[in-house]
Amino acid sequence: MDWGFIARYAPYYVLAAQVTLLISLSGIAVSVLVGILCSMVRHARIPVLRQVAAAYVELSRNTPLLVQLFFLYFGLPKLGIVWSPEACAIVGLGFLGGSYMAESFRSGLDSVASSQADAASVLGMTRVQSLRHVILPQALAVAVPGIVANVIFLVKESSVVSGIALADLMYLAKDLIGLYYDTTEALALLVVAYATILLPISLLGTLLERRLDHARR
C-alpha cells in the first residue's frame, strides 16, 4: 500500500464524494416528488393519469439506469433537447427512483385500513387533520424501511453517472487507475468513500425504523 499516494489523493476523493452526494440527494428529492405524485394519483384512482402512472412505474423499474441516462444524454439532444450532464443525472435518477418511491409510499398508504379514515371523520376531523394525525403516521411507519432502502439504492446507483462524464467517485477512481496504475490504493479509497457515505445512512435507517414503529412499540 502506497500511503503517500493515499495522502496525496484523499482530498480529491472528498471533492468527488461531494459530487456523488449532490447528484444523489438532488435525484432523491426528485424521486420523492415523483413518488408522492404517482402514489397519490394511483391511491385516489384518478382515471387515465392512473394508467399513465402505472405504465411509468413499469418502464422505470424494468430498464437499467445507464440506458435511461444514455437515452437522456446522447439520444434527446438529437431532438434538440440538450442537457448538462448534471441535469441529466438528476432527471435520470429521479425517473428511476420515482417508481421505487411510489411503490413504497403506496404500500404504506394501502396498509392503513379505510376504517381509520372513517373513524377520524366521525370524530370530526377534517381530511387534512385525519391525514396528518391518523393516516400518515401509520402509513409512514410501514413505508420508512422501503424508503430508506430506496435512498441507499439511489446513492449506489448514482455511481453509474460516471458513464456520462460526471466527475463522481467512480470517475475519479477510474481516472487515477488510468493515470498512475496505483490500482489497489485508488480502489481502497473508493471503497472507504462509499462505505463512509452509505453506512451512516443504513444505521440511521435502522434507528428511524425503530423510532417510527408506533404500532409494535
Binding site: 441507499i152 448514482s158 467512480m170 477510474k174 496504475y181 490500482t183 489497489t184 473508493l190 462509499y194 462505505a195
Partner: peptide
C-alpha cells in the same frame, strides 16, 4: 449490499489485475 455494483466490478476487474 453496501457497495455499488459498479464498485464491485471495478474491484474484481481492475483490483485483481493490480494486486
Amino acid at each position: 449490499r453496501i457497495m455499488p455494483q459498479l464498485v464491485l466490478l471495478y474491484l474484481v476487474f481492475f483490483g485483481t489485475a493490480g494486486a
